[in-house]
Amino acid sequence: MNAMTETGLRVLSYSEAIREAMAIAMENDPTVILMGEDIGVYGGAFQVTLDLVDRFGPDRVMDTPISELGGAGVAVGAALTGLKPIYEFQFSDFAMLAMEQIVNQAAKLRYMLGGEASVPVVFRLPAGSGTGAAAQHSQSIEAWFGHVPGLKVLQPATPEDAKGMLLSALADPDPVMIFEHKLLYKMKGHVPEGSYLTPIGKALVRRSGTDLTIVAGSIMVHRALEAAERLAAEGISAEVIDLRSIRPIDAETILASVRKTGRLMVVYEGVKAFGVGAEISAMVAESDAFDHLDAPILRLGAADAPVPYNPDLERAAVPQVETIEAAARRLARREV
């Protein structure tokens, strides 16, 4: 990222970008409030809300009791009646305590009420493995919410997207869940100044290629890009698509790429079975792009196990650069 500073572009970390987005939103819109466990003086478990309570006060940066169901529900009710709450789950795993409010209430209220109500709530969810936090603090459950009509589910991979997506989520009249990868919080990158919106539901081709398509989300985008760089040295040209949004999903960008390369691999950190890869694979199989497939579709997801504690096991449980590289090579070399 030094290259960016050399070009004079402003560089922020992923968590700084999110914090900046929240600060901009709160400056511009008095109905925006933050809620969550230990987000005040503590600054949040990952320090994302650090110092915001000093700027905006405890009435707008609200420490909640350890009551995820109630807290999420309060955010839903507040959103339903005119506020724009950003509710931070301390870990995305804890969203399971609030499934009722997220899935039965937030997602469905607009529909159940025949379009007569809006729930513009934003849920922020630190996700993913790699921190040694083991089975109940390391999951990637974004695909669960991909199954729920009424929700929008985002996975920013860069600081720029993290800020732009949060601002877009706040501008959106429907509930949005943003899964932030814990290992990305310290990642630095160019972040434009001021307010801007990253479109929701639009994937991004991060690297063009001709031999195969790798669709990845969140931190897997970076791993896929590194794998693609290594493969390029062997003459294998991989296209890497940053999914960015699980719901709505950008079918067009994916299908266009598959039509071009004829080979598809989906890389995600959630458990492989019944995941994002299944959805994308089926989507391609059901589409006109099917006739362009020149090899079976590959899915790389997490092992069929809870996230383990031992660091080597933890690493082995989810796709890494080497595993992505090896699988992509086999796919490109027609060994699959």
């Binding site: 109905t31 409030i33 009435d59 707008r60 169901l69 109630g70 807290g71 999420a72 529900g73 309060v74 955010a75 839903v76 009710g77 507040a78 959103a79 339903l80 009646t81 005119g82 506020l83 709450p85 009722e100 409010q101 039965n104 209430q105």
Partner: peptide, 16 residues
């Protein structure tokens, strides 16, 4: 289901 939502609605009234 409506209990936390009611609290949220009350929060809105207080906040605004």
């Amino acid at each position: 289901g409506g209990l936390p939502i009611a609290v949220g609605a009350a929060l809105t009234a207080k906040r605004l």
